[in-house]
Amino acid sequence: MGKTFGKYNDIELYKALSGKKPIAEAAFSELYARYAQRVFAYCLRVTGDDEDAKDIFQETFLKFYHNANSKNEENIDNIGGLLITIARHLCLNFKRNRKQLLNIDEFNITTNDTEYERKELLKLVSMAIELLEFEYREAFVLRQYQGLSYKEIAVITETSVSAIKNRVWRAKEMIKDILSPYLEDMSN
């Protein structure tokens, strides 16, 4: 960790991953520091489960590293997008193997309490996100959590920009409806 790689851009670091081990290690560490949180947030909010998110998160970075070492001459220009794409594919595989367990009827918010603890609120948000269909959830997370542009999301999800806009809009509406009692409380 002694060598400094903070000054290199993502692409330079990505190329360095296929270099000698000390160089590759330092480059990987730098990229990990830059994107670990985003990737984990995506995994956590899309899967809705800590353990699953952890597994997918680890798998994402392993695949990412092996991808860089595969001598594949593909043109990479967005490392963040690449990582999310890998994570997304893993999430889709995960989704295929697991059914949605939560039902919207189970999700009731009592508004009697005037003050929600911050942690509880965030838990509610994550639960609300889990209630969304995968494509809406994904679009919402990429837009709201990752701060990606509609165009970037469209590239990652291989969908049109307008479709993504629509998904994000619908996701917001659904979450807003679920959290409505709380949001009204906040608004007052």
Binding site: Y32, A36, Q37, V39, F40, A41, L44, R45, D50, K54, F57, Q58, F61, L62, R118, L121, L122, V125, S126, Q144, Y145, K172, I175, K176, L179, S180, L183, E184, M186, S187
Partner: peptide, 26 residues
């Protein structure tokens, strides 16, 4: 409501951290 939703999601994002064991495992 929309503004609050935006604020809430940003707050949520800020609290998410990769677990240490996941980092170690990678």
């Amino acid at each position: 409501k929309q503004v609050k939703l935006q604020v809430v999601t940003q707050s949520d994002m800020a609290t998410i951290t990769p677990p240490i064991e996941a980092t170690n495992a990678v």
